[in-house]
């Protein structure tokens, strides 16, 4: 159907709809009271709680820093503290980016752009998050062994455990592959939106 034919059909429909009023005050007011539970609000709250837990853990590490008496332990503890300090901030910033879409104030282009960019940042952050979390998991082992058991794993480490390293790397590789695969569609869709806007 060409545009001119569409315009004729649309105009006919608009005229008919003008005559066919369906809404009452009651229905309209009922619609204003619906309760949408925003997924982003829920995630934002969970991330805030997570952030508090991270900072508490960081303070515990900082307060007990003297316990880490070798360079290897100190470096591990410092890296742990850095991750605990930076990750929550990055995470909250990314989620806030997603929440910035304001459908009542923005125009169509701004809405699409903000949405697509926010989503892209979110996916990129999730990928980074997997890598950092894995590193954090590895660092936590010697740090917590020293903190709670007064055991220096760097000295008592069984060389046979070295065999586990390649398996861990394979596991990490699989994890990154899986996360990338999961978000591929979302990322592609965001790219398409941004390309559409630029065209």
């Amino acid at each position: 159907m060409e545009l001119e034919e569409m315009q004729a059909a649309w105009s006919q429909m608009s005229q008919d709809l003008e005559k066919q009023k369906q809404l009452t005050d009651e229905i309209i007011l009922k619609m204003t009271q619906q309760k949408y539970t925003s997924q982003w609000n829920k995630i934002f709250t969970a991330e805030k709680i997570g952030g508090v837990v991270c900072y508490v853990a960081m303070v515990v590490l900082l307060a007990n820093f003297k316990t880490f008496d070798t360079i290897a332990l100190q470096v591990s503890a410092i890296l742990c503290m850095l991750i605990l300090a930076v990750l929550p901030i990055l995470s909250l910033k990314t989620i806030r980016g997603m929440k910035q879409v304001n459908v009542t104030k923005m125009n169509y282009k701004e809405t699409m752009e903000t949405y697509a960019k926010g989503k892209k940042n979110f996916v990129n952050f999730q990928k980074l998050n997997v890598g950092i979390s894995f590193l954090f998991m590895l660092l936590t082992v010697p740090v917590s062994a020293k903190l709670f058991n007064d055991e220096n794993l760097f000295e008592t480490l069984d060389p046979k455990l070295g065999i586990a390293a390649p398996f861990m790397l394979v596991f990490f590789g699989l994890l990154v592959w899986f996360v990338t695969r999961c978000y591929k569609k979302v990322l592609r869709s965001s790219e398409t939106i941004l390309k559409e806007i630029e065209e």
Partner: peptide, 24 residues
């Protein structure tokens, strides 16, 4: 238009409509 665009992309819509039976 903004709402329509974001509506289609909401990953999970929970408890959306308040059963407005009269809305045909």
């Amino acid at each position: 238009l903004n709402t329509a665009f974001t509506f289609l992309r909401k990953e999970k819509r929970k408890g959306t409509a308040v059963g407005i039976e009269n809305l045909h």
